[in-house]
């Protein structure tokens, strides 16, 4: 079993502190959900783990199996096995999905080794079938002119192809209608297994009806304020986040 451990993490963007001493331990084989109101720092957490350059870690650590990854470039982290399904994936004009994924997989091979094309396409088509994507999808440029649902499906396709050790899903449910949500969830569930740890970030409980988490964390003002089983998510759905809201000063002092 491998662990992604967040240890007393403090993160700022400019002068503004967003994460204020966050702790989390995600082992492989489990799915954790993070829920919280807008602005609580959920997306920041995902981006910081992935190494987004806009954020400054002021103290604390992110450990991949005991090793700090904070000094690593985003691509090194990715090749180590960290995957972020973006809330707002970027467009890459002119680069087809097939070529993009191929380049991403090629980047994981030792120098001088070439990706085997037949195997690659076999795997790609298998994963696309799983996500109910038409074959013509591979020749479209990454995210260019995609609908919200197509973008999210494309993120999950990439996750399926890259087989990360730890996957961070940032608001994967936003912008999805119920049918798309089912397809995406089905894709995510099929990737669950003893070798993968998932962190599902969501604002709504709805997604957790389809991706049932082992642990639910509630995040408010840059910290985890409560952790529990999936019933916690139902409580949030019924009662909102107000009960978990602490006054700002206390949160900082804690």
């Amino acid at each position: 079993m491998q662990h992604l451990k967040i240890d007393n993490l403090h993160v700022s963007i400019g002068d503004r502190e967003i994460l204020r001493g966050l702790n989390l331990d995600l082992p492989t084989g489990q799915v954790h959900a993070i829920m919280g109101p807008n602005g609580s720092g959920k997306s920041t957490l995902a981006k910081v783990i992935a190494g987004h350059p806009d954020y400054t870690v002021t103290s604390g650590d992110v450990l991949f199996d005991g090793e700090s990854i904070l000094e690593m470039e985003p691509d090194v982290r990715a090749r180590k096995g960290i995957f972020l399904a973006f809330q707002y994936p970027s467009e890459i004009p002119g680069v087809t999905i097939a070529n993009f994924l191929r380049a991403a997989l090629q980047a994981r091979l030792p120098e001088g080794e070439e990706l085997e094309a037949t195997e690659y396409y076999a795997k790609l088509y298998e994963k696309m079938d799983l996500l109910e994507m038409p074959r013509t999808f591979t020749s479209r440029a990454v995210n260019e002119g995609f609908s919200g649902g197509e973008k999210k499906r494309c993120e999950i396709l990439q996750m399926a192809m890259l087989q990360p050790t730890f996957a961070l899903l940032d608001e994967t449910d936003s912008g999805l209608d119920i049918d798309a949500l089912k397809i995406v969830s089905h894709g995510v569930n099929s990737l669950r297994g003893p070798a993968t740890g998932m962190l599902v970030i969501t604002h709504y409980q709805r997604l957790l009806n389809y991706i049932v988490p082992d642990v639910v964390h509630v995040m408010v003002n840059g910290r985890i304020v409560e952790s529990g089983t999936k019933e916690l998510a139902l409580k949030l759905e019924a009662e909102g986040y107000d009960w978990a809201n602490e006054p700002e000063s206390e949160a900082v002092g804690a």
Binding site: A50, P74, D75, A78, F100, A104, L105, L162
Partner: peptide
Amino acid sequence: QIFYMQQRGLTE
């Protein structure tokens, strides 16, 4: 865009 691609394992 560069961050997105790096997140998939490509160098800058």
